[in-house]
Design a protein around this nucleic acid. Structure first.
Lengths: 337, 337
DNA sequence: CCTGACTTGTACATCGATGTAGAAGCCAAT
DNA sequence: ATTGGCTTCTACATCGATGTACAAGTCAGG
């Protein structure tokens, strides 16, 4: 494999001159530049990134740490972040933690801090009491609300407000027996979305009813939503609406509801959260909270860039905008739309 | 940031001894090893990967090149490949091409050949006539059937057989007007799955009917399936079954069918391909071809490992096993299952 | 007490690119 | 002719870890 030395030899210049050409050093005679470029072309030379990194202390790589790509939300998030990073000329390493505490800690231990310039981290197992782990010596941007108020930059949406708006939408439809699927006793999105749900319920003058609030596991897959819904139906508690804390939970719940013979939204209205692509194609299509994922991705990458560039001082907490996407699962089929 | 030199100084040994400890060199006195490990611990030392890579010529990173993570199939594939790579101690860079020809070529140009030890590539735009581009000087494993018979290792499933089996399943149900959604005139999975469809149709004594074969775009998203289905319905051609060349196409089609008032499977049976998680939760649940994705992922990583290790000579073409997952969209709801 | 085998550690060159210092060539102004 | 300011390029040290060569120390057997 050709090195810079080979290029220099072929072009009849010094190795540093080759480097200068490649780094757009201004004082290069046009003829010299041409010779060098020709040599590079002939030899098919590619710069050795490891060597450059060793000198420069930068790798041009960032790590994205998510629970798992199989969840559409994280898949779409990764898509958006990879694209946003590409614009900055960065390459993205994707690490999956599976929501396993030990693997999340490992990501923060700095084992890769020479390999990447910075990390975008979406924790699932680590929580609010553990912000100590965030005192890391590499640029870090946190996603989601699992570990707010730590010594890091932080991008999320107003989970409380968004969840409240989603619940309010169900209340506005005249529903009063609204199940909340996604609570799992773990701080973070589960808790803040639950808080939003509760705020809407209580400000509507209703009372909190724990029979409407099944406990689910850590992982918000479709199965979890289906199981929780089945549990609710089995319990016999009356239900006229469901708020799934994410779309896959809601879709799982919807599946069970339809299978049990309920009509959506006539008997039970359903709303989700995240607005994944699938919501537009389920039957019925699923109303959802659009969390501004692309904005989150861009913001996270921008914050990381500032942090890496050293231009940031204060730790920032940024809230992306959300909107409600109302579809059939709450308002039924609209004849003209 | 502490370097090996610092560790050596603190432990009172030479820098090479530290290196030896870290690399499990056999002849190290236990007391020396302990001193070194203590020093490493006290300093919070982490090895500089770039420096090691520069020496070793290996990076421990592989690149996974896919069209886009937003498609569940590729999201799940990436998940599986990242896990399989982690077992080998590898880190995975995920690159998205968006199915854009230029970006796919760029991935093969070797621009990153110093950054990664090898590449797993799932092409979408590049096709059979362009195997020239596959004469690359880095370890490469190809996924899918877009560029068979090139000078590379290759992992795929028997698309023709699998598609034929899926179509045969519809025929076995007594359907004769089977639409095929996914053909786009592009060689690769689109073509081979079409061939399988046609083989089943013709061996059943039916005649090919082009009004049942809409042309879709390159990207097999839900929208594409929905549009194609709408087109079919508008054309008025009779249809009693649909074979979607992947699940998202089938789901998009199913959405349009249900919306038009058709019952699935009573009026129209639907089968997809890929067996993504969503198929188990759609209403009705979607029959699909299970392509053995985890097996594909593991096989691809294994082949790449052999190639990187230099232990492989012949270029290999490996076919993963497939099975049919029969669900409600073809056989209706089963009372006891 | 010496030899040779084995253990344990050190010094130095090296991987490939880049920053620093400065040399050499050229020109205009003195 | 000399000075000084540009432009253009070279030589060398350096980033951090590792392979090679070899030195020093230990220990058994003769």
């Amino acid at each position: 494999m050709a090195t810079m030395r080979d290029v220099a030899a072929r072009a009849g210049v010094s190795i540093k001159t080759v480097s200068n050409v490649l780094n757009d050093y201004p004082y290069i005679k046009e003829s010299t530049r041409a010779k060098v470029l020709t040599a590079i072309d002939q030899l098919g030379y590619r710069m050795n990134i490891s060597a450059r990194n060793l000198r420069a202390g930068r790798t041009g790589i960032i790590a994205l740490v998510v629970p798992e790509l199989s969840l559409p939300y994280f898949a779409q998030l990764s898509d958006a972040i990879i694209e946003a990073a590409a614009i900055k000329g960065w390459t993205v390493i994707v690490e999956q933690t599976g929501g396993v505490r030990e693997r999340e800690l490992d990501m923060l231990s700095g084992a890769r801090r020479h390999l990447v310039d910075g990390v975008i981290f979406s924790p699932l197992a680590l929580g609010p009491g553990e912000t100590d782990h965030l005192h890391v010596d590499f640029p870090l941007v946190l996603l989601g609300e699992r570990m707010s108020n730590g010594p890091v930059d932080h991008v999320t949406i107003s989970n409380v407000q968004a969840a409240r708006a989603a619940t309010q939408h169900l209340l506005d439809l005249g529903r009063h027996r609204i199940a909340a699927i996604g609570a799992n006793g773990v701080a973070g999105a589960a808790t803040t979305r639950f808080d939003g749900y509760l705020a809407a319920i209580e400000s509507a003058g209703l009372e909190r009813d724990d029979t409407l609030i099944p406990v689910v596991g850590l992982s918000w897959h479709r199965t979890a939503g289906a199981e929780a819904m089945q549990e609710l139906l089995d319990s016999g508690t009356p239900i006229d609406a469901v708020f799934g804390f994410n779309d896959t939970l809601a879709l799982g719940a919807m599946h069970v509801l339809l299978r049990s013979g309920r009509r959506i939204p006539e008997d039970v209205a359903v709303i989700g959260f995240d607005n994944i692509e699938e919501t537009r194609f389920s039957m019925p299509s699923l109303s959802s909270v659009e969390p501004g994922q692309k904005q989150i991705a861009r913001t996270a990458v921008d914050l990381l860039a500032e942090r890496i560039g050293g231009g940031a001082e204060e730790y920032r907490e940024i809230y992306a905008d959300f909107t409600l996407e109302i579809r059939e699962s709450t308002i039924g089929r609209q004849e003209d739309a």
